[in-house]
Write a protein that binds this DNA or RNA. Sequence first.
DNA 1: GCGACAG
DNA 2: ATCTTGTCGC
Length: 260
Amino acid sequence: MTQLAELAARVLDDPEGWPQDPKEAIALQRRMADRVHEEPLDVDGVRLVAGLDVSYAKDDPALAAAAVVMDARTLEVVERVTVTAEVTFPYISGLFSFRELPPVLSALTELTTTPDVLVCDGFGLAHPRRFGVASHLGVLLDHPVVGSAKSVLHGRHSVPGDERGSWTPMVSGRSEVVEDSARLADEGAEVIGRVLRTRERVKPVYVSVGHRVDLAGAADLVLRLSPKYRVPEPIRRADRLCGERRKEYEQERARDRSAE
DNA sequence: GCGACAG
DNA sequence: ATCTTGTCGC
């Protein structure tokens, strides 16, 4: 077992880490948020990245999670793993990690390679308590994590230019589109993320620091992981993979139910 | 109290 | 997130 896989298993087994009550979950986020660290990310030095995602069934607690490890330069798939499980926490905006991380960690337990950076479908610091799923995962594993989300949860931002690579800062505050968020940043507002156009004239993605990366490096990495589509390739692949696995799992469960 | 609200 | 057909654009 790799060190990362072992760590994931240990963290998963810690009963203290997985409150069932939203009140306790929020308290846990508040206690852990100061453990998030930002450090320079050498994007050219990144070899392997893992995209992580979870797929849920409609009227069934069944879910599947996937981790897809890719070469950051060639975008060649190096490893793919899936796990199936059942939901253990409801979806509550702001408490996403308590629903998503148990299956994600379970998938990481199966990896035989060690990605340099993990990419989460969601936010890190761009969160009301600065502790989105990417930060939560990063702190638990003490590993570099980048958050890449498809819509806004928290923060004020303006709309980036139409060209691929164009971006604007997200600054602290309730969700709102403003005239010039770069000016707010210059005036000292806390920068919590970056709105990044990964495809010309296509809705941008929202990048934020999860843990042990810096925002510019995170955005550079996301851009280079998205040469063709809006969403970073590792997340796209993980999304597709866990979706397929989840449907299979639903069928298996339906068969098992009718067999008894 | 009202509106916002990752996946 | 999930469900779901056609349709618009490069």
